[in-house]
Simulated assay, not measured.
Amino acid sequence: MRLAHEDVQRAAARIGGHVRRTPVAEVGPGLLLKLEGMQHSGSFKVRGAFNRILAAVEAGPFPEGGVIAASGGNHGLAVAYAARALGVRAEIFVPEVCAPVKVEGLRRLGAEVTQTGAIYADAYEASQKRAADTGALEIHAYDQYDVAAGQGTLAVELLEQVPDGVDTVLVAVGGGGLVAGIVAGLDGRASVVAVEPELIPTLHRALDAGEPVHVEVTGVGADALGASRIGRIGLQTTTGRVSSVLVSDDAIVEARRALWRDFHVAAEHAGAAALAALRSGVYVPEDGERVAVIVCGANTDPATLTG
């Protein structure tokens, strides 16, 4: 079942008073950057976290165990932020590859943190066992309708901010929640290019196979784009509705440096992946094409921005 535009519209109405309207910067002819690194908790993920929790509050009664999530870092930060804002207990499971800056951030937000397993899938398995014991509300990093619908509010916002419209939106893909939300949120008003690291081609391989398939998780984007299998919502919503391209780790690193050097925009590697498709020539716009690049996260060590 595909995520619907109406799901995203409802999410936008629900979370509007809880999230920031992040800026759009025109940095070149026909080139726009949607700066989701300036969102609460440093990434787009807080949109889905708020929508999931608030939808559960509406449905009631809310679990006494609070909320629980597994994350490579950004999703956990978002859940912890939303939970604190709404007065809800949060427990977050992260893999060992999670960046220290993100683990520290989780603890500052008051979440109980458990670091376990080599990759996201390991942390997710541990979180499921814990949720079964406590009855806490599970907030999946990408494969829940409320979560994906919340992420799609980014696209609704983008269209409102750019009244002349955009032709194409470039977005990085991990588990598929953001790209699904954007496809549903745009509702055919712009093309979508799904960008993944060559080393983690989760959606790319699934589109070829017609079903989610397991991929190894490695490379510079592993902490934030580290889903080993695309979500069902992501695959069903994007099939036949996106172009899929792959970028090298070197291209991601270069794009991240360029964001800081040229625009003073701090981004983690995942946040720079979409721009890497343009800068490396993997995606070449037509003459006059207006392209919006989603800079999806900024949770990184500032000391590494030029390295």
Rank of each mutant, 00 (worst) to 15 (best):
Q151K: 02
R205P: 01
P100V: 04
P95F: 07
A11D: 09
V282P: 07
A11N: 09
R14D: 06
V282Q: 14
A141M: 07
G76C: 05
P212M: 09
H214M: 13
D143H: 07
Q115S: 11
V247I: 08
Q151L: 02
F44K: 03
P63N: 10
A292T: 07
A227G: 02
Y81I: 01
E64I: 00
A121T: 12
G17L: 13
P201F: 14
D7N: 11
A78W: 10
R256P: 08
S191N: 14
L246N: 11
H18D: 07
G117V: 08
A49V: 06
V169S: 03
K102G: 01
A266H: 04
L305R: 10
D164A: 14
E211S: 06
V265G: 00
G105K: 06
G110Y: 10
L235D: 05
L246W: 14
V193A: 02
V295K: 09
A118I: 05
M1S: 06
H264K: 15
E36M: 04
L32A: 03
G307H: 15
S244T: 13
L246A: 07
L178F: 08
A266D: 00
A111D: 06
P197A: 14
Y145M: 02
T134L: 09
R130P: 03
C296H: 09
E96F: 05
A90P: 06
L275T: 01
